[in-house]
Structure formats: structure tokens, C-alpha cells
Design a binder for these strands. Structure first.
Lengths: 198, 198
DNA sequence: GCTCACAGGCTATGCCTATTAGCCAACGGT
DNA sequence: ACCGTTGGCTAATAGGCATAGCCTGTGAGC
């Protein structure tokens, strides 16, 4: 009975592969059986490394969020203002296009009260911090920053979710529409700057 | 053995109730067993009225889309331009808040090739038509309309999805942030109007 | 180099889904 | 009153998660 040499980390990596292989709903379709099969192991064996399917899902989600954070961070370093926002928006969309399943994982929010989700919460907070940093170039008041981050996340996530879900059926160029959306977003954020500081 | 008096329509209604009772992921969590239980019937009996769980899901989705269309239509009749867009955005969000499960159902896109999904496709097209009509007041060129509809759907859907999913964790007022987003959207759409026709 | 505790596999089992097959009673038209 | 169709049912298959309990390979300590 040879050992497969699994570990919590190895299982999580395999799960990420499964999620990626499943397309846009690879995350929703993630199954312990698939991971076990990929690991060459019987399903119950996974419980030696992972508490439950839900726990594995959380693990996948926090890893995906960290990847998204890294992508956003890479894209915005050295940029500021409108330039940074544009770069961030494109980085988010690119990540979603390259890893639709992982992107979906990125969008489940951690329970604010569950201590088992502290890591996930922290990862999510870091991701938002990147967006906040990208907005530093604008002279926004505190609650303006909140509105702007929410608007940016909403606009990009909404577009990407509809795009990946096949929600845009017209043949017209999606890249151009996204560009238009980002332009609206940047202009809208700029318009949040109070009059006296323009 | 008394009869329960079910029908395709009755089953769909019960399914809508189940979806509604399940909160934001009531649609994903929809199960034949739940519907059967609510109908006071054994699970396999449902197959006399519904082809499969997937088919029931589609039925629920198209009904939900029609409801959303009706809500949008009600909200925008008699309005035009920025006023219509604002009203539409608020109608969409209100529907999502009142029926989180059904709203989720409205966001699955029909397969463009599957003849079994023709009704769903048609319902989705009508929903988009409402948005197009709401934009009539702007003097947009054809592809500008497409960009604008996509932007509106993206912005509102993104916000609502994040909101319902608990993605906004700051205590700041969500209504205000939504208002800010809608304002950006309206201004952005206005900015799509070509110079010479302003 | 031996022993032995433990970690990491396994099978068996239970309960939940969806789905199919086949039975039988109730209802409605003739 | 009959009888066919419709709409229930039970039984059974297959696949999912999860738990229990066994058994063996590995490595730490002597």
C-alpha cells in the first residue's frame, strides 16, 4: 500500500487545478471525488488533510484571492490616478479570463464571524487594500474612497461575471465595451473629488 | 391514494418559493426533494411534470427573468434619459433585495443553441430590450447603446452581487454608494453621446 | 538495527441527492 | 359502466459527502 505523499498544501493545489479545469463554474462544481481521483487516492483519504469540502473550498478561495491581489498589485505598482485604476480593472479582468474558475472562487465573501475564516478574511482585506492604494492619486475624502472602491469592484465584477457567464450575446466587441466601462468608471471617480480640491 | 393536483405550472411556483426561501443562494440550492416536500409528494412524482432538475431550473430562471423585466418596465414607463436609467437601476436592485434567490436565477444565461431554452432566451432578450428602451432618451449611436446597456447591467449586477454576497464589509451606507455608482453610470452614458449631437 | 507510535492510506457504511422503471389507483370521456 | 390516460407510488441505481474503523508504511528513539 504505497503512500501518495499528500499534504494539505498538495490537496489545495490539486483542488485549484480541478477548479481551473471546470471553467466558469469550476468552483461551484468542485468535488472531493474529483480531487481524490486526480490525486490517485480514495475520496475518504482526503479527510486526513482537509476538514471538509467546505474547508477545502475556503482554502481554494483564499488562495485565489491572494493570486488576484498579487495580479492587481503587480499591475498597479508605479502607477497612480486614472492610470492605476485602468490597470487594476484590466488586471482583474485578465485574471478572470485566464482562470474563470478561480475568479469565481475569489468572489465568495468570508463570514465575518467565523474564526475558521480568518485567513480568508485577511486575504480579502488585502485585496481591497490594493484597490484603495490604486485610488491614492485621486484626492478623495474617506467615504469617497469607499464609494469609489465599491464602484470599481462592482463595475468590473459585474462585467466579468456577465461576460464569463455568457450574458453578453451581441457579437459586438467586448473589449471595446469594457474599455468604455472603465472610462466611465475613471471619469466617475474623478467626479467624486470635492469641488474645492480640484 | 389521493392526488396532489400538481401541474408543470404548480411545480414551477413551488420551486420559486423554495428558491426564495433559500436566500441569496436559494437558486443554487434548489433541490427536487425540497419542491416535492413542499408539494406533499414523493420526489420521483415530480418527473411527471418536469423533465429534470435542470429543466425546472430553466423554468424558474425564465419566470424570474420575466418578473425582473416587468419590474424594470414598470419603473421606467413614462421616464426617459437619466431619469429612466436611474429608475431602472433602482428597480433592478430592489428586485434583487426583495428576491435574492430569484435574482440569482435571472443571471444564468440561456444557451444560444439549445432549442429547449428558446423561451428563456426570449425572456432574456425582452429584459435587455427594456434597458435599451430606457436609453432611448440619450442620443446614442448603435454601438454606443450596446456599450451603455452593458455598462448599466455590469454596474448594477456587480453591485448587487457583491452586496447580496456580503462582499461589502465596511459599515458605510450602501444606499449612498449605490447612488454614487448610478450617478457615475448616468454621467458615463451621457459622455458616450458623440460631440456633434450634444 | 529494532521497535513501536502515529500518520496516511484503505474499505465499509450511512445518508443525501437525481434519475429511471414499473406498478396501480383515480379521473374523465365515451 | 367501462376503460384509457394521467398522476401518484415504491424500488432500485448511481454518485456525492462524511464518519468509523482497520492496517500498513515511515521514521524517531533507543
Amino acid at each position: 500500500m504505497p503512500r501518495a505523499g499528500l499534504s494539505r498544501d498538495a490537496v489545495a493545489r490539486l483542488a485549484l487545478d480541478v477548479v481551473d479545469a471546470g471553467g466558469a463554474d469550476g468552483f461551484a462544481g468542485l468535488t472531493l471525488a474529483q480531487v481524490a481521483s486526480r490525486a490517485g487516492v480514495a475520496t475518504p483519504s482526503l479527510y486526513k488533510h482537509v476538514g471538509s469540502l467546505a474547508a477545502l473550498r475556503r482554502e481554494v478561495a483564499t488562495r485565489a484571492v491572494r493570486e488576484l491581489t498579487a495580479a492587481g498589485s503587480r499591475a498597479t505598482v508605479g502607477r497612480s490616478g486614472p492610470d492605476a485604476v485602468r490597470a487594476l480593472a484590466h488586471a482583474w479582468r485578465s485574471y478572470a479570463q485566464e482562470h474563470p474558475g478561480r475568479y469565481a472562487a475569489t468572489q465568495v465573501s468570508p463570514d465575518p464571524d467565523d474564526p475558521a475564516q480568518a485567513e480568508h478574511r485577511e486575504a480579502a482585506a488585502e485585496s481591497v487594500a490594493v484597490a484603495v492604494a490604486a485610488l491614492r492619486g485621486f484626492d478623495l475624502p474617506d467615504d469617497g474612497v469607499i464609494d469609489a472602491v465599491r464602484a470599481a469592484r462592482s463595475a468590473v465584477h459585474g462585467f466579468v461575471a456577465l461576460e464569463l457567464g455568457g450574458g453578453f450575446r451581441m457579437p459586438q466587441d467586448l473589449d471595446r465595451s469594457f474599455e468604455a466601462l472603465v472610462t466611465m468608471l475613471v471619469a466617475g471617480i474623478a467626479a467624486l473629488v470635492p469641488q474645492e480640491s480640484r
